[in-house]
């Protein structure tokens, strides 16, 4: 069944804070082969004016992904995950994510469109510090294939 476009605009409660750890940044950077010292060496990161290790540009997916089940499991959306493919992904950074950040993620349904039997769901995950300072927005578009 196609997604209901009337559900666009809905927001979810702030997810539990995500504590960005040095070892997680190092692990993620290693997994993508990013050897730049700003991801691994605190002194190198500080020499470039950062408070602590800097996460690679796509690291926000780890934080948003930790709580996106709020959206994907929304019974009113009723996403059939066997028909879902990741269509687009975009990150807009106010500043890089650092080790030591405590990030609160709020998920929003930006847009739902239905074309040719397929549904397109765009979510925006707003990453903010616990005190509300904006860090990044992660936009994901999922394609839900229609019934064959």
């Amino acid at each position: 069944m196609p997604l209901d476009p009337a559900l666009a605009g809905r927001s979810y409660p702030p997810a539990p804070p995500y504590q960005v750890g040095r070892e997680k940044i190092r692990e993620f950077a290693t997994a993508i082969g990013a050897a730049d010292p700003v991801h691994h060496d605190v002194d190198a990161a500080r020499a470039l004016g950062h408070l602590d290790l800097v996460a690679p540009p796509t690291f926000a997916i780890v934080i948003s992904g930790a709580s996106l089940h709020q959206v994907y499991g929304d019974p009113e959306l009723a996403l059939d995950f066997s028909r879902v493919v990741h269509g687009d992904q975009r990150f807009v950074h106010t500043r890089p994510i650092h080790a030591g950040d405590e990030i609160v993620c709020v998920h929003h349904v930006e847009e739902i469109t239905v074309r040719g039997g397929h549904s397109f769901l765009t979510t925006r995950s707003a990453l903010r510090t616990a005190s509300g300072e904006p860090v990044a927005d992660a936009y994901a578009k999922l394609v839900v294939r229609g019934e064959d």
Binding site: I32, G33, A34, D36, V38, H39, L48, H50, V54, P56, P57, T58, D88, Q89, R90, F91, V92, H93, P96, Y139
Partner: peptide, 22 residues
Amino acid sequence: ALAGRAVTAWVGRADAVAEYGV
């Protein structure tokens, strides 16, 4: 993420990406 590594390598800074979409 791997394509993003190409970007940060070209720029010469791993902290310089403000926006990135695919």
